[in-house]
Design a protein around this nucleic acid. Sequence first.
DNA 1: AGTCAAGTTTTTGTATACAAGGTCTACGCA
DNA 2: TGCGTAGACCTTGTATACAAAAACTTGACT
Lengths: 218, 218
Amino acid sequence: MSKTHPNVIADHLEEMILEGTFADNDRLDEVQLAKRFSVSRTPIREALQRLTQAGLAERIPRRGVFVRQPGAIELLEMFEVMAELEAAAARFAAQRISDAALKELVDTNEECERALQDKDADRYYRANERFHQIIYAQSGNSFLEAEATRLHRRLKPFRRLQLRLRGRLRQSMSEHESILKALSDGDPETAANVTRQHIAVQGDKFHHLIATLKTAAE
Amino acid sequence: MSKTHPNVIADHLEEMILEGTFADNDRLDEVQLAKRFSVSRTPIREALQRLTQAGLAERIPRRGVFVRQPGAIELLEMFEVMAELEAAAARFAAQRISDAALKELVDTNEECERALQDKDADRYYRANERFHQIIYAQSGNSFLEAEATRLHRRLKPFRRLQLRLRGRLRQSMSEHESILKALSDGDPETAANVTRQHIAVQGDKFHHLIATLKTAAE
DNA sequence: AGTCAAGTTTTTGTATACAAGGTCTACGCA
DNA sequence: TGCGTAGACCTTGTATACAAAAACTTGACT
């Protein structure tokens, strides 16, 4: 592998962790990674620190850094917070969204629809992601946008799971419609509530999630 | 200064930045800090990286790291998000709070009251902080608790300002009462809304905030 | 055989050396 | 005098050397 910058290394490792290349509690060996990326330990340590800061790994003093995959409970907690952040973004967006963005949102949702009919999961995920990203941006709050994006990214590998969990994509689509309506109506409360419901994982789905996680782990 | 660990150094620098020891855009000189803390540049660089990750400073490649004090807009954005996180915590807490915690919350609020009557600002701030911390914890979501605490900490130096901004502490106290009532009633919606109002900086206060910031900067 | 301890090896953490790019000064030239 | 540029000087970024702590191995003793 060619010599590369620490940020790139961190991105790379982050990607690997998020994609599940490493198992939970795997140790990230500094010299091994140094060889792997053809750099010295110094930039590797920098990258590892970034990962620990992001919560993707944990550094135990004098023992090393270990990847930290979230368990079922932590995952639920993260989804709960995600739901609130998205709800907040939708609340603000209902008051602040531009006509252009609203149109873009409609287009994106139609793209979702088409991808769904074509059974093109990949395209659906991309469009879905853009749908949410537009709402973050239209919250008119770049700090919120950044935080939401960060958490969204962190949860990305589990989104697929969440969708399967929710049952059918159909329902997700109709929720999008409700969000869209609330936004174009300029109704912050409804926008927030509908969005929260859209993201949240509640009640009986909890057990389903745990079961799915266990299956995935084996 | 005695030789100390990078985390301690980072905490120290963080404290200094938050307390306003450094001005915006000040460069954090590696060798200077190394001398100051009697360590080599390596642990200093680690500490600086932590600061940049936390958003308290920015690293410009090949130029150094510079402290980033939030401007008025960013500050408002952060308060907006803080309001939403607190509202979310209150929403969950209304459903999950324990009797013991509820009692503790009442006690803490009374402590606020007493401190207010004694005009003991310091004690008031401590009690106020505990009040909010209890709500975070009682959200029953440790991820949310951690995120809220993180942002709370970041906004700490501006809270004083926010209170002055809101007018009188009296109002803050009566808002606490409303929150308390909603929590003991187990009413999530009200708890969330009241809390959001409690934290939020809206409308005309905006200009006031900017003016106050400018004064503080001179 | 099992356990404990001393020594060896491995690994992290810190210091220092070196390389590469950026800044600043001083001098030449219009 | 003002501007541009060459070169010295700093500063950051990376590699390597060294120190200290943990893990592992081996062997002695019960």
